[in-house]
Design a protein around this nucleic acid. Structure first.
Lengths: 373, 373
DNA sequence: TCCGACGATGTAAGCGCATACATTCAATCT
DNA sequence: AGATTGAATGTATGCGCTTACATCGTCGGA
């Protein structure tokens, strides 16, 4: 890293209401009114105050405002830790401004990040609509709980991704701060919940395979067993089979962890065993894409030799060859509805906890035999 | 959307230091000490206080703490608006829990989001390391400036992506709050800056094409003209040509806007004209990927008929066929270094503004003829 | 035995703002 | 003219916390 030698010299002040009031020749109450309820102040006074604000570069203190108003005007967003680290080293950079690397290995899988990114965009959009700011925190490392408390203390409510925070910790925090859980089962808690129609979506997809394509020998490749989304999807899969009078397996044929790498492992096992089902229904797109990769490499044709489906509707699923039939989750809406739920909770603290289930879209594409192949 | 009828009834309180102090039989100063400087309190007292904290579900108010401590412990992160909207409608969802759509068009381009996402991850990581929280805001719509002021008022410093905020607005905010600009030129401002070696990276990449592959007829496909990254890259391109004794164009052969869609347009124009250069050097990966798409469709072989390169090192560039030769920007590090810069600024408010330039990596892959083709 | 030092805790003063309430004054009504 | 009203503004309090300073023991050394 190159550090360019500096040039100028900045100075920094921090004006307060008192400074502005003095300069404008009014009381601090009037300054506050000009900024919060302009309709309550005369035209001339407003102008004088605004001039003083501009001249002093006054920016109201969020802390003071939050304290006085008893609400911070911020929502907190809690993510799980993808990197799963306890320690992160300080930044370490090459001294060379440019290095050359021949053909390095492909990047990691940014997909989970993408999912989070979409949810976050939704949260941000809805927060923006209501003039709220968004503070994010990753529940990571040993100080995890402290980080969460800190966040809870500085926001009006929390949006937490399911499974990110242990139930007991969340319950404790919920005592003082409204919590909305996104994509997680209600386990006897009192939080508001927002989720998607995982089970029905998977059921409709499975029924499509059964009825539109006349398939009978379907297998399920699961994700992480302790994730409620996975359970719901598997249940939807089984429900479709049972409704068609077919035997429903007790457990997924294969069990992955939602990653593409594990999807590859599963596919290799499948190929090695030599006993392919007619269709492999995967618990999520990443798994399916990993499977697809290996299958194609092994000469298995999709969908001719094997029908393959995913779940989530991530971008990459629409760009694979063949394009992946999947179930699209409204991730941005998940975030937006979560904020809505939070606002309603803040408006009516006494109301009983709610659960919202967002609709999904089954996208029929090439990997099941639909779409333009 | 399905709203499941509610069940329980939550109640919410909000304990304060006073409550905890009373319950533990100590003064509020002691409560504060237990939480901030535990080493200054006796073992027994600490335990009593912590018990009271737990029993009451006490979470300190961030606003009050921020006010008293004169620092909020948060950094602000300002993004540009990708969607470029003035208004965003309320959430609108289908009433059907599951809908089926045959073969919908491919998704949008989440790539800019990805870039931002990586920078944000870096900011978050470094903030986490220093026990800071991160508050994000998108400079969007008419209330843009108000949103920014609000953010500036509630954080200790701002990380702003270059070009997101007009220079005069940023200067005004900089009067009261330290600002670090990421990936933007310094235009006589007093902010700290963090960028990457765009010019040198592009120059090395271009020199590789000239010397390792013996190419002579190179063209440049630019991005948005008003973006400093684009200028730097084009300058690096020209510097390499001049150093090799070749004529350097005054302007890019083609001018896009960093999107894949525009890349496609450019490629069509190129193909229609029928006059392909030996190599097309693109200002970023998205453009290159769009170009690649059309070229392959038109039967142009890469790299045999045309050498193609990108810039940024996004994930998709490593997954295309052929894989894209490009220059990788350390996006996560960009975010991390920005926070570092902010912390140093907070520690030494009087120091002159700094500029940090992070190193890049030239990734030689298939699209220039390197790598395993 | 007395004094100083030091560790542990309490006291009290804000931090910068919002807001309930009081005050002022001009316009309106009787 | 005096009373009444309402808009515009000021006064004063407190939000919940941190922290400088004061206080109180306790213990070791003279």
């Amino acid at each position: 890293m190159v550090v360019v030698p500096p040039t100028g010299v900045p100075e920094r002040s921090r004006a307060t209401v008192y400074d502005v009031a003095e300069r404008a020749g009014v009381s601090i109450a009037t300054v506050s009114r000009v900024l919060r309820r302009p309709e309550a102040v005369s035209r001339a006074t407003t102008q004088r105050v605004l001039d003083a604000v501009r001249e002093l570069g006054y920016v109201p203190s969020g802390s003071a405002r939050g304290l006085a108003a008893r609400r911070s005007g911020a929502v907190g967003l809690v993510f799980p830790d993808f990197d799963d680290v306890e320690e992160i080293d300080p930044v370490c950079l090459s001294d060379e401004p440019v290095t050359v690397r021949p053909d390095p290995p492909g990047g990691a899988e940014p997909v989970t990040n993408l999912y989070m990114g979409e949810v976050m965009r939704g949260v941000e959009i809805e927060a923006w609509r209501h003039s709220l700011s968004v503070t994010v925190a990753v529940a990571r490392g040993a100080r995890k709980e402290a980080v969460l408390d800190d966040l809870a203390g500085r926001v009006d409510g929390l949006v937490v991704l399911g499974g990110t925070v242990p139930a007991d910790v969340l319950a404790r925090i919920g005592r003082s701060t409204p919590v909305v859980v996104v994509a997680g089962h209600r386990d006897g808690d009192d939080h508001d919940h927002v989720g998607t129609a995982n089970g029905p979506g998977m059921r409709v997809l499975t029924e499509h395979l059964l009825h539109a394509h006349g398939l009978r020998d379907l297998a399920f490749a699961g994700g992480a067993a302790d994730v409620s989304d996975d359970r719901d999807r598997f249940d939807g899969f089984r429900a479709a089979l049972r409704a068609a009078g077919l035997p429903a397996p007790e457990a997924p044929l294969l069990r992955g962890d939602f990653t593409q790498a594990r999807g590859r492992d599963l596919a290799r096992r499948l190929v090695d065993a030599g006993d392919l089902p007619e269709a492999l229904v995967c618990a999520n797109d990443q798994t399916a894409l990993g499977v697809l990769d290996v299958l194609l490499g092994a000469g298995v044709r999709v969908p001719q030799d094997l029908v393959l489906t995913g779940f989530d509707g991530i971008d990459a699923a629409g760009r694979s060859r063949p394009r992946l039939t999947t179930v699209h989750q409204p991730m941005v809406e998940l975030g937006r509805v979560a904020v809505d739920a939070l606002l309603q909770r803040l408006a009516g603290p006494g109301a009983p906890p709610t659960t919202r289930v967002l609709p999904v879209q089954v996208l029929l594409r090439e990997s099941c035999g639909c779409g333009r192949a």
